[in-house]
Write a protein that binds this DNA or RNA. Structure first.
Lengths: 129, 129
DNA sequence: CTGTATCCTTCGGGATACTG
DNA sequence: CAGTATCCCGAAGGATACAG
């Protein structure tokens, strides 16, 4: 994370810094999926593992720890046998999830345009020089 | 905020997919900084390089190419000597930038909480088991 | 001024096996 | 059930030098 030196004539460094800040927390491959899954109420480890397709137990654990550390998730252990652990999104995490909507909508609305632009760009790869 | 209805099966895959989609375009280290800088009007290569602290010419070029390919930037070359190149954010990019605000605000509002949570977590590192 | 080309390091994350 | 522990690889990105 680069808390860059502020230059005169700079591009709203506050906004950029804040945005990067958010991305650092949310940009991980599984972060938002986990927060989304834990936003509707407590959810157990195995349940998360089943709910999120493709995640490994390792990455699930790692991401959960990071989110817990940042105060986005609360981890509750029930000392039963076998052990039971629940994760719940905090209000901060739920607000984060909400703040995500605009971005998701942008992606939905522009996904096709981008795909097309990309195809066009690649098609002219030889032409361009 | 949306009321939490846990879907059977998995966690609103559409939303997650869309979000990841947006991140892929915006999650690069310098992407949003460049879009921000190019949102106010045409800006030259050297100007970008000066405006964005810490970016290397290499990463500037690479990121510019990616953004151009995705249709987020328009590249205009003036065949002068010395060469002059201008980059301008497209409307799609400017909408993306706008969609970013909620996230930035979330980061600004919660940055301190997160830092504190993190510090507390690390302080209890030995205690926890 | 506007890039390319190389080299090199870091790190996120997958596969797999083991554990309380 | 809920994790840890290793090993490994590819991609992102920094440093540096060269070029039209």
């Amino acid at each position: 994370m680069s808390e860059g030196s502020r230059l005169p004539g700079d591009v709203e460094p506050d906004v950029c810094a804040a945005f990067r800040d958010a991305l650092d927390r949310v940009g991980s491959k599984w972060g938002m999926a986990i927060i989304a899954a834990a936003s509707s109420g407590p959810i157990r480890f195995a349940e998360l593992h089943r709910t999120i397709p493709g995640i490994s137990r390792r990455m699930l654990t790692l991401t959960l720890r990071t989110l817990e550390r940042d105060g986005l998730l609360v981890r509750t252990v029930y000392p039963t046998v076998p052990p039971q652990v629940e994760y719940t999104a905090t209000s901060v995490a739920r607000e984060l999830f909400t703040s995500t909507r605009a971005l998701s909508e942008w992606a939905e609305n522009n996904h096709e345009k981008i795909t097309a632009s990309r195809a066009a760009y690649d098609r002219n790869a030889g032409t361009r020089r």
